[in-house]
Write a protein that binds this DNA or RNA. Structure first.
Length: 804
RNA sequence: GCGGGUAUGGUGAAACUGGCAAACACGCUGGAUUUAGGAUCCAGUGGAGCAAUCCUUGCAGGUUCAAGUCCUGUUACCCGCACCA
């Protein structure tokens, strides 16, 4: 047979699949549904890299199998196209972001189609199109209506290089997620989405979904729920309470000072009473200069200043205690103030040592002359708690006491903060609200959506982080929808994460112009049965989109509480040098190059064969070549067809076993061993030197999800019915998976001596007797007495002996 | 510091509820064919040893007839969060 011409063949079948629409999902069907979702790509200028291909290939294989199993499969794709990288590139090259985006989407589409993914291309979405972002704005307005949107003038994470306000999620580690500059804190008007309102629901919802355990754990940590108490400490001489949050109310008797954040408003309020106000101001300025990195990483020494003029009173003991400011207390968590218990908290301990503050032990068990003791033990020096040995009990008693006296109560805190939702940039969804002098903030009426992003020539941000939209008078000036007076539009846009927070709903009904999706269609398709994507999205996109979906559920717009029934994650593909692929390192592998020189089937097979799907693995050109060899050897099977429709006796059980293994491996992300099993089977076929038509049919079916082009071509050449893409999946018979003759190991004292081939159903007695006939066993047992004998069916025999 | 994970040949990796460690592939060595090979095919390939045999799953113990797998301790690396009160 001629050399396999993958270029011609792959193009041929890609055209055929498109013409026949075999991969289009049906909106009404008697078949069971299967909705598989992959994270839609951000169409960057660099094009796709092979990591995208790996991310999509996993569920691609599952979907191709599901269709064969008789499911109505929805496997959509789209583009998450709003965002800063495009805008920055547009500014750099002086090209409009619309054009950049269209060009990139075209490039990505071409790349995806060349790989032969079985996406439903009739449902493609682009988050920057009016008929899409109209609904993004619609959901925002619904949230506004329900009080989940609020505006605050707050200290925000600000990237001086991108000139943009960032969420906590986008500024992890004190670095801008986009350009990696150091983040500074800046006061700005910020739009927030009240995601914290959904903290408990997001937490509880995890119980009903099937996510990988580490994904769940990361979300739990991110939400960071803790329970404790709020306690009000009276300030001496003024009518003011300093409110704190603590998870350890049981240590309240050990409080010897308090610390508040440098930005705490109480300082400003009692400015006149504070003798060293200037010193506090200087300290605060000093802290503001520190980068997040210095604040969190260089923690070797505590700093702070005692407030001269404010003294607090411990509500339990009535004792007067000093108040300090220090940057180890954050304004953004809890109340921005803490009660300090140096004996039982290491940070407080360090601070107390430095400032010579009293340390009172209230829990026995440690040595507080050396370090803080954070363990459990008997309460001492603690009034009514003395003698209690149980942490839970003492916490309950204190809270009961606080509530009785009205100086505190039980409380819950979350590490998760509300979602800073505006960006001072051009390439995003305009936030649909109007600022009116008389009415305040007024939402744009629903029937005026979409609020279009104006087409402008100059889309660079202002020097002080002003949105480019602020310069466009036709956009800014409008009338108030409520009172009709002249008003101004909000000029900030939504963050990149907005469009992706609900895209999985739009796929269900992508062309609907009356609602974001028809409810009945949502009822049929939702939830997503299986969602695969990267670990890097676990605390951002995955939380955000669950939040939006839960909100839509609460207002009756979607039929289920959780959007994704199952979530898995693929591992990165590293560069050939073992480093993370990046443009700057020049180690990026372009899928187009691989398709050009090896073909799409080889690329698809390799990305799944290269290792554990969930683990990172480096790209290896020579291993790609191994997959090329494999596909070519498969192609040559056509020359080896010798028999009829059944399995040959020599290969029958191996075929049944392979069908079983490939079928189950595909379901558990073990694509590498599924392919290995197909390679083993191929080797056996070559050893035998022939293949029956029935065997070929099964082989092509099993390989089809991985290498759809070559198998489809061979299916046609060998005259099998219809298109392989729609042919049924292979079945196996459990009873035929077992071989009649099996080889078992024979051990003496756990050491391998020999192997024997026996009848699979041989009795223990016969197996042992046969084993004892072996020369190597005889010599090892000679002169010894047999203590015990083990026979593990089909596996091994172990004879335990000791000197006679 | 907290949370999660990983450790097996020269390399990527297999190994179901404890049961023959290294499947499958890459690479390497030798051979065949070839003007040539980054092509193809065949054979070999964990380590030591002429051999019988012995050793081998980060390290140290333990349980067991039997441990990569279970238990205790320990080291290194990776990921996420982080003065979170």
């Amino acid at each position: 047979m001629a050399q396999y011409d993958f270029k011609k063949t792959e193009k041929k079948w890609q055209n055929k699949w498109e013409e026949t629409g075999v991969f289009h999902a049906q909106d009404s069907s008697d078949k069971p549904k299967f909705y598989a979702l992959v994270e839609f790509p951000y169409p960057s200028g660099a094009g796709m890299h092979v990591g995208h291909i790996k991310a999509y290939s996993g569920l691609e294989v599952v979907c191709r199998k599901r269709r064969k199993e008789g499911y109505n499969v929805l496997f959509p794709i789209g583009f998450d196209a709003y965002g800063l990288p495009t805008e920055n590139y547009a500014i750099k090259t002086n090209t409009h972001p619309r054009i950049v985006t269209d060009t990139n989407i075209e490039k990505f589409t071409g790349q995806l189609k060349r790989v032969g993914f079985s996406f439903d291309w009739s449902r493609v979405i682009d988050t920057t199109q009016e008929d899409y972002y109209r609904w993004t704005q619609w959901i925002f307005l619904k949230m506004f209506e329900k009080g989940l949107v609020f505006r605050d003038n707050a200290l925000v994470n600000y990237c001086p290089s991108c000139k943009v306000v960032l969420s906590n999620e986008d500024s992890q580690g004190g670095k801008c997620d986009i350009c990696h500059s150091d983040i500074i804190q800046k006061a700005k008007p910020v739009w927030y989405l009240r995601i914290t309102e959904y903290a408990d629901k997001l937490l509880e919802g995890l119980d009903e979904v099937d996510y990988l355990p580490n994904i769940k754990q990361q979300q739990v940590n991110w939400i960071g729920r803790s329970t404790g108490a709020f306690v009000n400490f009276a300030l001496k001489g003024v009518d003011e309470k300093l409110r704190i949050y603590t998870t350890r109310p049981d240590t309240l008797f050990g409080v010897t000072f308090m610390v508040i954040a440098p930005e705490h408003p109480v300082i400003e309020k009692y400015k006149d009473r504070i003798a060293n106000y200037a010193e506090l101001e200087a300290y605060k300025t000093e802290c503001g200069k520190k980068t997040e990195f210095e604040r969190t990483q260089l923690v070797n020494e505590k700093t702070g200043v005692k407030i001269d003029g404010i003294t607090a009173v411990n509500p339990l003991t009535g004792k007067e205690i000093p108040v300090y400011i220090s940057d180890y207390v954050m304004m953004g968590y809890g109340t921005g103030a803490i009660m300090a218990v140096p004996a039982h908290d290491q940070r407080d301990y360090d601070f107390a040592k430095k400032f010579g503050i009293e340390i009172i032990e209230v829990i026995k068990g440690g040595d507080i002359s050396k370090e803080a003791y954070t363990g459990d033990g008997e309460m001492v020096n603690s009034g009514f708690l003395n003698g209690i040995n149980n942490k839970k009990e003492s916490i309950e008693k204190v809270i009961e006491f606080l509530e009785e006296k009205g100086v505190g109560e039980k409380g819950v805190q979350y590490k998760m903060k509300d979602w800073a939702f505006n960006r001072q940039r051009y390439w995003g969804e305009p936030i649909p609200v109007v600022h009116c002098e008389h009415c305040g903030v007024v939402p744009v009426p629903y029937d005026e959506l979409p609020l279009r992003l104006p087409k402008v020539k100059n889309f660079e941000p202002g020097t002080d982080g002003e949105s480019p939209l602020a310069k466009i008078d036709e956009f800014v000036n409008c009338t108030c929808p409520k009172c009709g007076a002249p008003a101004k539009r909000e000029t900030d846009t939504m963050p990149q994460w907005a469009g992706s927070s609900w895209y999985f709903l739009r796929y269900v009904d992508p062309h609907n112009c009356k609602s974001f999706a028809d409810y009945d269609k949502l009822k049929y398709w939702m939830p997503v049965d299986w969602y695969n994507g990267g670990m890097e999205h676990v605390t951002r996109h995955l939380i955000y989109s669950r939040f939006w979906h839960k909100f839509l559920y609460d207002i009756g717009e979607v039929p289920c509480a959780e959007p994704y029934a199952k979530r898995t994650a693929q591992g990165l593909i590293l560069g050939p040098d073992g480093d993370k692929m990046s443009k700057s390192k020049g180690n990026v592998v372009d899928p187009n190059d691989v398709v050009d020189s090896f073909g799409a089937d080889v690329l698809r097979t390799y990305v799944l064969f290269m290792g554990d799907y969930e683990k990172a693995a480096p790209w290896s050109e020579s291993s790609v070549n191994g997959c090329k060899r494999f596909i070519d050897r498969v192609w040559n099977l056509t020359d080896m067809v010798t028999g009829g429709d059944g399995y040959s006796p020599e290969l029958e059980s191996l075929f049944h076993k392979t069908v079983k293994k490939v079928s189950s491996d595909i379901e558990t992300l073990k694509y590498n061993t599924a392919i290995a099993a197909l390679m083993t089977l191929l080797n056996k076929i070559y050893e035998k030197g022939g293949i029956t038509r029935g065997e070929l049919k099964t082989y092509l079916t099993l390989l089809n999800p991985f290498a759809p082009h070559v198998t489809e071509e061979m299916w046609e050449i060998n005259g099998f019915d219809g298109m392989l893409a729609t042919a049924p999946w292979a079945e196996y018979d459990e009873s035929k998976c077992a071989d009649a003759q099996i080889e078992i190991a024979v051990q003496v004292n756990g050491k391998l001596k020999d192997r024997i081939t026996v009848d699979a159903e041989i009795s223990q007695e016969d197996a042992l007797a046969a084993a004892k006939e072996l020369e190597k066993v005889k010599s090892s047992v000679e002169g010894m007495s047999i203590v015990k004998e083990f026979y593990i069916k089909g596996k091994l025999i172990n004879i335990v002996v000791k000197p006679a």
